[in-house]
Design a binder for these strands. Structure first.
Lengths: 218, 218
DNA sequence: GGCAAATCTGCAGCACCTGCACTTATACAC
DNA sequence: GTGTATAAGTGCAGGTGCTGCAGATTTGCC
């Protein structure tokens, strides 16, 4: 039902992005803003992991983050968004990688490379995994986000619209693969096993190749 | 993103179920209960179609159905459930058909038969389609429900668990197919074109055969 | 008719989320 | 440094979904 394997996986390189060396100094206002945002994210995640998503109120987060409840909604669209924003960032990054891929490279290649290049889980990723495991409905919504992204991106690759049946089939298969990978690895421990990831991904790619070839023949 | 082609399609035979000839008479209390439920469903659907899902409040529905707002929640778990309950019923029916299918028949065969046996859209189905078209998020959630059902059923067919990658790939591909069918047929008019449905479904089956064969070879 | 059970209802209340006006903090020009 | 414009933070009122609870109403049955 969920896809938080990928999501927690993606999170592993999120930390690197917070330090931006290209800009000299963002200014106090901007720094404080960023700090506030990160504080909210951090304490919210801790509370979610500790007592559950539904059991944590906006008031709780506000108090723990030492801000007004109203302030939270100027940073995040919704309570759910506090949990999903980092995944969204990573989805955008993946989208960027997909768009900028060299000619001749398939979306599948990029995905494989993207997954392989990521490091092990960090603290936040583990907490997030815990939250999502305790609340399946959250995972469903996250997975829907991911599939939309995949479908659009793959449709671009193929040069057709998002309603192209091939795009959908590929995106759906990919998404199924990620879900499967997550569940396979869930029992195995905290950190994903790269070997298993590669194997499952290869299976899916094999499946896709065979299926697409069959479509071409007909 | 959505799957309401199937959903509206499935609805077409919903009406038949409301008349139950096996039981002599359900009693006044039970009849009134059923009547209230149907009234709520009907007026809610009309309001959703007229002014949108988010723009319709529980109070609006309660007033139109001539019941207390509190009563609505004794019939439906949530506002969304008012819209989804009929689809859920049809999902259960499909599940039943899948479970009781003759040995040697594949899930794909059953699905194809199931889709082909349904009649044209009824009034409620058209309204529902309108509601879902105006609110993509609703369709995403509905689609997630359907995929879960498909995955479980197909997993049973294959004799493995729901975490079997083949089950997921097949279910995901099927779901992608339905989504595509809906979008293809959307522009074509109100009633689905059986010919196009068959064609798209056949394409997907071809895709699946090719993909699964490739998996077997490896 | 009278009792038991189911149903309906109103009310209070929690939680998410929003708009708006107001205060406070930062940035920038002088 | 001072003053002003801009942005961030806050408090408040309110809308909406949803729930628990207790009492009124309706139905089933003897």
């Amino acid at each position: 039902m969920q896809n938080f394997f990928l999501c927690t996986f993606l999170l592993s390189c999120a930390e690197m992005e917070t330090i931006d060396t290209s800009v000299p100094r963002p200014g106090l206002r901007e720094r404080k803003k960023q700090q506030t945002r990160e504080t909210i994210e951090r304490v919210a995640l801790e509370l979610f992991a500790e007592r559950g998503f539904d059991e944590t109120t906006i008031a709780d987060i506000a108090e723990a983050a030492d801000v007004s409840p109203r302030t939270i909604f100027s940073y995040f669209e919704s309570k759910e968004d506090i949990l999903f924003c980092q995944e969204s960032t990573q989805f955008e990054r993946l989208e960027q990688v997909l768009e900028q891929r060299p000619a001749g490279t398939t979306t599948a290649d990029v995905l494989r490379e993207f997954l392989s290049s990521l490091g092990p889980h960090d603290e936040a990723a583990l907490l997030r995994k815990k939250v999502l495991m305790a609340n399946p409905a959250l995972g469903v919504r996250m997975r829907a986000r991911f599939e939309s992204l995949l479908t659009e991106s793959i449709a671009k690759d193929l040069g057709g619209g998002a309603d192209d049946i091939r795009s959908r089939l590929i995106a759906a298969s990919m998404n199924a693969a990620f879900t499967t990978m997550r569940e396979q690895l869930e029992a195995g421990g905290d950190a994903p096993n790269p070997e298993q990831v590669t194997q499952t991904l290869d299976e899916v790619l094999e499946f896709l190749r065979g299926g697409l070839a069959a479509l071409d023949r007909s």
